[in-house]
Amino acid sequence: MADNSNKVPENVSGSYYVDEECIGCELCVDTAPDNFKMAEDGTHAYVYKQPEGDSETELSDEALSSCPVDAIGDDG
């Protein structure tokens, strides 16, 4: 389970976030590209835009549930 006290610094403010357990597999970026991006050094992903609307929320939830290391959280 993601730890909101261990968020990567690039996350925008909001309920969805990526924590430091991220292994940079890019699954969330592939699943929800409107909301997740990879850091410039490629080591981890982050939330660059909080989901808006049902479609983005569903894809962000899919990314969260698919994360192999449980590095995505939703405090909403």
Rank of each mutant, 00 (worst) to 15 (best):
40 E>N: 13
56 E>M: 07
66 S>F: 05
34 D>S: 13
58 E>I: 11
74 D>Q: 05
28 C>P: 04
7 K>G: 01
67 C>H: 01
53 G>T: 08
58 E>K: 14
15 S>G: 15
66 S>D: 14
37 K>L: 12
31 T>F: 04
67 C>M: 09
54 D>L: 12
34 D>H: 06
42 G>R: 06
73 G>S: 10
66 S>G: 12
30 D>L: 10
18 V>H: 00
19 D>E: 12
18 V>M: 01
34 D>M: 10
24 G>M: 04
57 T>I: 09
6 N>F: 14
21 E>R: 15
48 Y>G: 09
5 S>M: 14
58 E>S: 12
59 L>T: 14
63 A>V: 11
51 P>N: 13
7 K>D: 03
40 E>H: 09
50 Q>Y: 03
18 V>D: 00
62 E>H: 06
5 S>Y: 12
26 E>Y: 10
31 T>H: 03
29 V>S: 04
19 D>H: 01
7 K>Y: 04
1 M>K: 12
41 D>Q: 08
12 V>I: 14
69 V>F: 09
66 S>T: 14
72 I>M: 06
74 D>S: 05
25 C>D: 13
39 A>D: 11
8 V>W: 07
48 Y>C: 07
20 E>Y: 09
31 T>M: 08
7 K>S: 05
42 G>M: 08
36 F>A: 01
62 E>N: 10
31 T>C: 05
58 E>L: 12
35 N>I: 04
35 N>K: 05
28 C>W: 03
39 A>H: 12
4 N>V: 10
22 C>T: 08
29 V>L: 10
76 G>T: 13
59 L>I: 00
9 P>G: 09
68 P>A: 11
26 E>M: 14
1 M>R: 12
41 D>I: 08
23 I>V: 15
24 G>H: 03
51 P>T: 05
3 D>E: 12
62 E>M: 11
58 E>P: 02
46 Y>S: 03
71 A>E: 00
47 V>S: 00
35 N>L: 08
56 E>T: 02
19 D>V: 02
60 S>R: 01
70 D>G: 14
5 S>K: 15
11 N>C: 10
8 V>F: 11
37 K>I: 03
6 N>L: 10
70 D>E: 15
10 E>K: 08
27 L>P: 01
28 C>A: 09
4 N>E: 14
49 K>A: 14
11 N>I: 02
54 D>W: 04
14 G>S: 07
41 D>H: 10
25 C>T: 06
74 D>F: 06
33 P>I: 04
24 G>C: 05
23 I>W: 08
42 G>K: 08
67 C>D: 03
25 C>A: 15
17 Y>K: 01
44 H>T: 07
7 K>H: 04
25 C>Y: 11
44 H>Y: 15
59 L>Y: 07
29 V>T: 13
27 L>F: 10
66 S>H: 06
23 I>Y: 12
64 L>N: 02
62 E>A: 14
75 D>H: 06
71 A>F: 01
54 D>S: 13
19 D>Y: 01
65 S>T: 09
54 D>I: 11
47 V>A: 02
60 S>Q: 07
65 S>I: 04
29 V>E: 07
5 S>D: 15
52 E>V: 12
41 D>E: 09
24 G>D: 06
3 D>M: 07
37 K>C: 02
3 D>H: 06
52 E>D: 13
